[in-house]
Computed example of a mutant assay.
Amino acid sequence: MKVLVIYADRFAYEPAIKNLDEVETIEKGAAHENCIVAFIQMEEDDEEKSIASREKKLVNHLKWTARKNDTQYIVLHSFAHLSESKASPGFTKAIFDAAEKRLQNAEYQTAQTPFGYFLDLDIKAPGHSLARIWASL
């Protein structure tokens, strides 16, 4: 799993192109403020491990980055451009849903960008040392 986390003063998106037929149609975008935006790519070898183990590792990393940036708001974004290896869409979505549930149980505010879409993005991110963190988990 590869994760690029960006702290954003503002993160907004609009659906541009649906690239998975099996996902619901989304026509409306959203905007979020004072949040961690996690660009996440699940890799093929992640599927050899349990969903619970991958989700726990992801959540621990996201909670750490949120604390470092003094926010309780985390946005999960599927971003299959951090590695050549890709997990299946079903496995990836299962990780996202499990991670979101665990974060909410820990009293974080969460959101997911539309899964299976290319999005037009608008990001306003400050330039300080922990505002951008990349990890291979």
Rank of each mutant, 00 (worst) to 15 (best):
G116D: 00
H61R: 13
R102G: 11
T113Y: 10
F91K: 00
G29A: 04
N69G: 02
E22R: 10
E22V: 11
H32A: 00
K101A: 10
I95G: 00
T92W: 01
A106L: 07
N60R: 14
I74T: 09
V75L: 14
D45R: 05
T113P: 05
F118K: 14
K56G: 09
I95P: 03
K63C: 08
K63G: 07
H32I: 01
V37A: 03
K63E: 15
H32G: 00
I74A: 07
K57H: 10
V59A: 10
S78F: 11
N60T: 13
Q112M: 15
L58Q: 13
N34M: 07
Q41R: 00
A98K: 13
D46R: 00
E43W: 06
S85Y: 09
S129T: 08
V59T: 09
A52K: 13
I74M: 02
A52T: 14
A80H: 06
S129I: 12
Y73K: 12
K101M: 06
Q112W: 07
S78Y: 11
W64L: 13
R67H: 15
L103H: 12
S88M: 06
G127S: 10
K86S: 10
A106R: 12
D45A: 13
N69D: 02
D46T: 04
K68M: 11
E100W: 05
N105T: 13
Y108C: 01
K124P: 06
T65K: 12
T92K: 02
K28A: 11
E33F: 08
K49V: 09
T92I: 03
I51S: 09
E27N: 09
